[in-house]
Each structure stands twice: as C-alpha cells, then as structure tokens.
C-alpha cells in the first residue's frame, strides 16, 4: 500500500516536472530559432519590448489561470479591459483625481466579475456561454458610448495618468508597467500558494464536492475567481491606455484567447485543479516571443493567428494525451 502510494507521488512529481520541462523546451527552441534568424532578437531592448507588450495579456493570463484552475473559463476579459479603461479615461476627463479614476476602473472590473461570478456560482450557468454573452453586451455598450472612436489622451489633465504607463525606472532601463506586472505576478503566485483562499481554488477545481464537504464555501470561491479575473482585466485595460496614451475602444479583442493560450501553454490543466502562476508567466513569454519573432522575421501579422492556433492545439493535445495514460 505504502509502496503504491510512493509510486503515485513519484508519478505525480514526474508529471509535474514534465509539464515544466515541456514549457521551457518550447521557450528555448523558440529563442534559438528566432535568434538564429535575427541576431537582435536576444538583445536587451527587444527583450524589454516583448515584456512591455506582454503586460496586458500577462495580467489577464493570471485571471484565466485562476479561473481554469478553478474549473471554469472567462471569455469576457477582453471587453472588460476595454470597458474599465474607458471608464477610467472618462473619469479623468471629468476632472477626477488620479486615484479616484483608477478606483473607478477597478470597480468596473470587479462589478463585471461579480455578475459573471454570481451567474456561474449561484445560478449554476455555463461559464463559457455566460461570459461570452457578457462580452457581447459590453461590446455593444462600448460601441454606443464611444461610437467606435478612440480617445487620445493628450493634454495636461491626462498627464499623471499616462505617466504611470510611460515612466522609466531603474535608471531609465525599465518601463513602469513591466515592474507592475512582475509585482502582481509575485503577489498572486504567493497568494495561490500560501493563502487559504488561493489553495481552496485548487481544491474546488480538483473536486468541488469534496471541497464542499471539507467545509470550503465553494460558491464564494467561485465568485472570487471571477472577480479576481475582472480586477486583473481592468488593471490590464488601464495599463494599456496609460502606456499608449490613447483609449482604443476594442483594444481587448484578442486578450481572452491569448490569455487562455498562455495559461495552457504554461501547463495549467484544462480540467482544473492544476497549474501555477509562475509557469503561466513563461506561457505568456512563449506566446509573445512567438508574436514578436514572427514580426521580426518579416511575416505578415496574420501568420500569428495560425501560429497561436497551432500552439494552442499542441498544448491541449500534449495535456490530454498525458491524462489518458
């Protein structure tokens, strides 16, 4: 019995490390291929620009990772990001102080996460369809509000807001959003690993019935997952408009797809209960190095669709084949 148990633990450890090996392998192969084609690929400035462009999807991937670990998926994040950014921009425009406008953006994210979370946890609605429907509703609302026009953030009034996204720190080497992303990653990685709520998410995703029996409030944990996802999406949406100095109405169109792809490539298991925030970061790096590299070697941008599609296909295939054994 105990021998079996040891074997089982060993097997699980092997599997876990195999996931990591696979993720790093893809990353290294990517770096080697692109560096051999363009020597500037590995330069500091390019690496920094990969990090900088990956900030918004990096944050959204944390939310997706949490949702997938908990056994669900959140498709609404892209439009939530756009919506929150829009609210924050309008608040600034109306002369609200910086802190208040950021709070407004976060509130929008938390509120939309609350709606999705209540629908899924209390009403038991299918998360996939529900968040898609919400995304359509937000898209329509954004359209009505902006008429599809972007909002340029120039002028004195936007200065403190835009400064957060464009300020260079650490001797002018790193732009602030990169630092913000890394700090948020560390916070969430520690949270998922050591906090009671974070660990409950793994349990709920692995087996929600036994989680319920062991006294975890499954409904609230599920609600929390979606609210965290909404909060991170709002942060991402605000950061992207801070960095680019403009509020594009549909900036988040592909965020959900790329966030989910990153989480899965980083080894988060589709069926829930398994995954880590740290590895998700490397998943994001894989996706964004791919995008950056394809552009550097001069491929038109629609090759990115095919590349990400194939990447997603392989990541899911690799997972499911393993599960079957």
């Amino acid at each position: 019995m105990s021998k079996n148990k040891d074997l089982y633990i060993l097997e699980r450890m092997k599997r876990g490390s195999l996931d990591k090996v696979m993720t790093f392998l893809i990353l290294i192969v990517e770096i080697i291929i692109f560096t051999s084609m363009r020597s500037t690929f590995l330069s500091y400035s390019n690496f920094h620009s990969i990090l900088l462009t990956s900030v918004q999807v990096g944050l959204i991937a944390i939310g997706e990772c949490i949702c997938i670990i908990g056994g669900f998926i959140d498709l609404s994040v892209g439009m939530v990001a756009s919506f929150a950014g829009l609210f924050a921009a309008v608040a600034i425009e109306q002369g609200a102080p910086l802190v208040v406008s950021i709070l407004v953006g976060w509130l929008v994210g938390l509120f939309s996460g609350f709606i999705a979370g209540m629908a899924v946890s209390r009403l038991g609605m299918n998360a996939f369809i529900t968040t898609y429907a919400l995304q359509q509703i937000y898209r329509g609302l954004i359209f009505i509000w902006t008429q599809g026009m972007p909002r340029a953030m120039v002028g004195e009034i936007y200065k403190p807001y835009v400064r957060i996204g464009q300020e260079k720190v650490l001797g002018g080497n790193v732009q602030l959003p990169v630092i913000i992303m890394i700090v948020i990653y560390i916070i969430f990685a520690l949270f998922m690993k050591y906090h009671r709520v974070g660990r409950s998410i793994y349990l709920v995703g692995h087996n929600h019935k036994s989680a319920y029996i062991s006294g975890i409030n499954v409904k609230n944990i599920r609600l929390f997952m979606f609210m965290a996802s909404g909060f991170l999406a709002a942060t991402a949406g605000m950061l992207v408009s801070m960095r680019t100095g403009s509020q594009q109405p549909f900036v988040g169109e592909l965020y959900a797809l790329e966030g989910i792809a990153s989480a899965l490539v980083g080894g988060t298991a589709m069926e829930g209960g398994k995954g880590s925030i740290g590895m998700t970061f490397f998943g994001v790096m894989i996706v964004y190095m791919l995008k950056n590299g394809l552009i550097m070697i001069g491929m038109p941008d629609f090759y990115q669709y095919i590349a990400i599609g194939i990447l997603l296909f392989i990541a899911v295939l690799a997972q499911t084949k393993k599960e079957k054994k």
Partner: peptide, 23 residues
C-alpha cells in the same frame, strides 16, 4: 479519439483557418 476538449480544439482550428483565409 484524442479526447481534447472540443471547444478548445475547434477554437484553435478556427484561428488556423482565419490565418489561412488571410493568407
């Protein structure tokens, strides 16, 4: 046969076809 979650694999397939269309 490969037991992939259907919505995920068809989503990936959709992205691939989208790229092919653009090409």
């Amino acid at each position: 046969w490969f037991m992939m979650p259907a919505w995920m694999s068809t989503y990936a397939l959709m992205q691939i076809w989208r790229g092919v269309i653009m090409i």
